[in-house]
Structures are given as structure tokens and as C-alpha cells.
Simulated scan of single mutants.
Amino acid sequence: MIKQPHASSREIIVANAIKEVVGELRLVDVADYIAFIRLEQFGCISDIVDSAAELFFVPGALKLGHGGEAYVGWIETPRIELDLELRPAGATVYFTLSLTALHASVEVNYVAFDRPEADPELNTAFLADAVERARIRRTAPVAQG
């Protein structure tokens, strides 16, 4: 697939939006991801993603897509790839999250807009705003005295 010129800016939007979720996903042992993927227990991975996402996004905004892959070998660092969907109001981003021991990356595969504009830059700006609106804002507790 040929990458579109605006894809990298959209990958940055998605990566920044999910970085806290990635931290939560890393709390699960890599061996568990490998087992769930190899045994095709994607419901378990979906539950993990849902639990991590509910801390930072409105319900349904981030979920597991079609599954994932585990790349494991005798001489390579394990890599887990999860197909995810980010669904802020007005858009759906289909992307792959890749996790290794020291790195995480996002590759946007496709973005569908409910009402796309002719200008890709306007669509990218809309996506950034929509993702921000889908995030849960936590406020500091008020001290009672």
C-alpha cells in the first residue's frame, strides 16, 4: 500500500492519543499476548484493550479490530502487533500498534470520515479535534477542609 502524504501526521495524532493506553497494555506479560494470539483467544485481548482504553477514552472509542500477530523467535526480540480501531465521533481510524520490549509504534492503515472534506489537511484537523473530544478528562480532587 502506498502511504499518503498526510498519513504520518495522522499517525502522530493517534500515537499521542494512545500513549497512556500503551502503558496500560504493557502491564500484561508478553507471554500472555503470545498465548492469546497463538490460541486465537482474541476475546481475551479485546478485554485487555477495553480495560486499558476505559481509563482514557469514552466507551467504544478504542477497541481491538481484527486481531493481532505475535512475532517470536530464538534470536529476535518478541514483537506483538494488535489491529486496533480508534472511533472518535465522525471518524474511524484503522491502525496497527506494534509493541516490543523498548518501543511502540503506530501504523495507520486507513481513516474513514463520516463527512470527509476535499482537503486532506481539514480532515486531519478534524481527526485531531475528534480524538481530543473522545478522551476522558480527569480533574484533580477538590480538597475538603
Rank of each mutant, 00 (worst) to 15 (best):
Met1Cys: 00
Ile2Val: 10
Lys3Phe: 06
Lys3Leu: 04
Ala7Trp: 12
Ser9Phe: 05
Glu11Lys: 01
Ile12Pro: 01
Ala15Phe: 05
Ile18Lys: 02
Lys19Ala: 03
Val22Thr: 03
Gly23Arg: 02
Glu24Ser: 05
Leu25Tyr: 03
Arg26Trp: 02
Arg26Asp: 01
Ala31Met: 06
Ala31His: 11
Asp32Glu: 10
Ile34Val: 14
Phe36Lys: 05
Phe36Asp: 11
Arg38Glu: 11
Leu39Gly: 10
Leu39Gln: 14
Gly43Lys: 05
Cys44Phe: 09
Ile45Glu: 01
Ser46Gln: 10
Ser46Lys: 13
Asp47Pro: 01
Val49Asn: 09
Ala53Gly: 07
Val58Leu: 15
Pro59Ala: 09
Gly60Leu: 06
Gly60Ile: 05
Ala61Asn: 08
Lys63Ile: 06
Leu64Lys: 10
Gly65Pro: 07
His66Gln: 09
Gly67His: 06
Gly67Ala: 08
Glu69Met: 09
Tyr71Trp: 12
Val72Cys: 12
Val72Asn: 11
Gly73Glu: 14
Gly73Ser: 15
Gly73Ala: 15
Trp74Met: 14
Thr77Glu: 15
Pro78Tyr: 09
Pro78Val: 06
Leu82Thr: 03
Asp83His: 14
Glu85Ser: 12
Arg87Lys: 15
Pro88Tyr: 14
Pro88His: 13
Ala89Lys: 15
Gly90Lys: 04
Ala91His: 08
Ala91Asp: 08
Ala91Gln: 09
Thr92Val: 14
Tyr94Lys: 05
Thr96Asn: 10
Leu99Met: 14
Thr100Ser: 15
Leu102Cys: 03
Leu102Gln: 10
His103Thr: 10
Ser105Met: 05
Ser105Ala: 14
Glu107Ser: 11
Val111Arg: 00
Asp114His: 10
Pro116Leu: 11
Glu117His: 15
Ala118Ile: 10
Ala118Lys: 13
Asp119Ile: 00
Asp119Ser: 04
Leu122Gly: 04
Thr124Ile: 07
Thr124Pro: 07
Phe126Cys: 05
Ala128Asp: 12
Ala128Glu: 12
Ala130Met: 07
Ala130Arg: 02
Ala130Lys: 05
Ala130Ile: 02
Val131Arg: 05
Arg133Gln: 12
Arg133Pro: 02
Arg135Val: 00
Ile136Trp: 00
Ile136Ala: 01
Ile136Cys: 01
Arg137Asp: 02
Arg138Ala: 12
Arg138Ser: 08
Ala140Trp: 07
Val142Gln: 14
Ala143Thr: 06
